[in-house]
């Protein structure tokens, strides 16, 4: 059996040699990892979220370790659209043939649309991921008292409106990344699907906090931050399961995937692909080891395609 052909995955026209990607914000602009792993062996690379203008990011400390995970409040530091298009994207395309998916962020719907229009013209990217779930960018909704505003994907109507507008602006495969900081993620998932999203990806980080008892201060300068790592895997798995049972479009799953077994769990709840996040920090070989691991598992269990890897009935 040719490993290459049976792990090949086509998600809404994004053609990947395997279904293992790397998650936005954990893989820089790709080139940071080039000395440590063979980028060509990844399914796809999702770049750090870019915004229209460069963003300075939050003051330090920005990260702290927690039980089986870490909190981050990077604050979407990024080089901005111009430098991304001039330097980072061509630089990455030069060193790998792996599909590049560009993560897009913004403070208004218009900002998302503008970036999308600029990305249409590159001709080198495989798709766009709308990061409407970053806990560090807030949208001030009218008539709410919530301090600091809400995350776009915490509101069905805003999600629908934003995704529809971007959908009209591009023919590129459109991935919408959802936040777990909601009561019912299926409502948001449906809104994104109805608005024309080709793919959903989840989860972004649930909000958390840590206190340094020595200094009696919050561990992060930003006070709160997004939690990632094994600590969030059960939440991610539950949400992916809920969403794949609700929408028809494919789902890219992420949240605490550190090894093959973690990845398999997500495939068994019908994820179409998985993405490794902080796993890259602990062991940069993680995504490639998972590719090997999945291939072995399928062979051992005589399963032809990943699609056939669903949960069995009964208890």
């Amino acid at each position: 059996m040719n490993k290459k052909s049976f792990l090949f995955t086509d998600i809404a026209g994004i053609k990947m040699k395997n279904p293992v990607m790397v998650a936005s914000g954990t893989f820089g602009y790709g080139e940071e990892y080039k000395e440590l792993i063979d980028l060509d062996k990844l399914g796809a690379i999702v770049t750090k979220t870019i915004t229209l203008k460069p963003r300075a990011g939050n003051p330090p400390p920005r990260i702290v370790e927690t039980a089986a995970g870490m909190l981050n409040a990077v604050g979407l530091q990024n080089v901005g659209l111009d430098v991304f298009l001039k330097e980072k994207l061509p630089g990455l395309k030069k060193i790998t043939s792996t599909p590049v998916i560009v993560s897009v962020g913004g403070e208004s719907i218009l900002e998302y649309v503008k970036i999308t229009e600029a990305l249409n013209k590159t001709g080198t990217i495989a798709g766009i991921e709308l990061n409407i779930s970053c806990p560090n960018i807030r949208f001030q909704k009218k008539n709410t008292k919530l301090k600091g505003g809400i995350i776009f994907s915490q509101d069905e109507k805003i999600t629908y409106k934003l995704v529809s507008r971007v959908r009209k602006a591009t023919k590129l495969p459109l991935i919408v990344k959802l936040s777990p900081n909601v009561t019912d993620i299926t409502l948001i998932a449906r809104a994104a699907e109805k608005a024309g999203a080709d793919v959903l990806s989840l989860i972004n980080t649930p909000l958390g906090m840590a206190v340094d008892v020595t200094t009696r201060k919050p561990a992060l300068a930003n006070i709160t931050g997004g939690l990632s790592g094994p600590a969030i895997k059960p939440i991610a798995l539950r949400m992916v399961w809920e969403v794949t049972n609700t929408v028809k479009i494919p789902v890219i799953a992420m949240g605490g995937i550190m090894n093959t077994t973690d990845a398999l769990e997500f495939f068994m709840v019908k994820a179409a692909a998985v993405a490794v996040g902080v796993g890259n920090f602990i062991n940069p070989q993680t995504p490639l080891e998972i590719v090997e691991g999945i291939a072995d598992y399928l062979k051992r269990h005589r399963i032809k395609r990943l699609k056939d890897l669903s949960l069995l009935k009964g208890r």
Binding site: E32, A56, I63
Partner: peptide
Amino acid sequence: EYMACGIGACLGCAVKVKNGHFPGFKY
């Protein structure tokens, strides 16, 4: 500074320096 990746990918280990394009500084 507190580090996660150690290779420049996560932007976790930021420190503020002068002469950036964010009026007078950058991380």
